[in-house]
Amino acid sequence: MPTMTRHLLFLDIDPSSASVAAYRDWHRAGGPPAAINRSIRASGIESLEIWHVGDRLAMIMETGPDFSAAAKAAADAADPDVQAWEALMERFQRRLPFAPDGEKWVAAERVYSLDEQP
Rank of each mutant, 00 (worst) to 15 (best):
E46S: 06
R41M: 01
D25A: 15
R28A: 14
A22Q: 14
R38M: 02
R28T: 14
P33W: 08
R24C: 13
L11S: 02
P15G: 05
S16N: 12
P15N: 10
E46F: 06
A42Q: 09
I40N: 03
A35H: 04
A21T: 13
S43E: 05
L11M: 14
P15W: 06
S19H: 14
R28M: 03
W26G: 01
D25L: 10
I13R: 03
P33R: 04
I40F: 02
A21G: 08
A29S: 15
G30C: 08
R28S: 13
I45P: 02
R41V: 04
D25K: 07
R38H: 11
G31W: 04
S39G: 14
R38K: 11
D25I: 06
G31A: 11
P32E: 09
I13Q: 08
P15S: 12
D14M: 03
L11D: 00
P33E: 14
D12G: 11
R24T: 10
R38I: 04
G30I: 00
S47R: 15
A22C: 13
V20H: 10
D12W: 00
I36L: 12
R28P: 00
P32L: 14
R28E: 13
W26P: 01
P32V: 11
A42G: 06
A34D: 14
S17E: 15
H27N: 10
A42F: 03
A21E: 15
S47I: 07
R41S: 10
R41N: 03
L11I: 06
V20N: 00
D14C: 01
L11K: 03
D12R: 15
D25G: 11
S47V: 06
D25C: 08
S47K: 14
I13D: 02
D12Y: 02
A18Q: 11
S43Y: 05
I40L: 08
G30W: 09
S47Y: 08
G30K: 05
I13S: 02
N37Q: 12
I13T: 07
N37R: 09
E46N: 04
S16W: 09
S19G: 07
R41T: 11
A21P: 05
I13G: 00
S43P: 04
S19I: 09
R24E: 13
E46W: 02
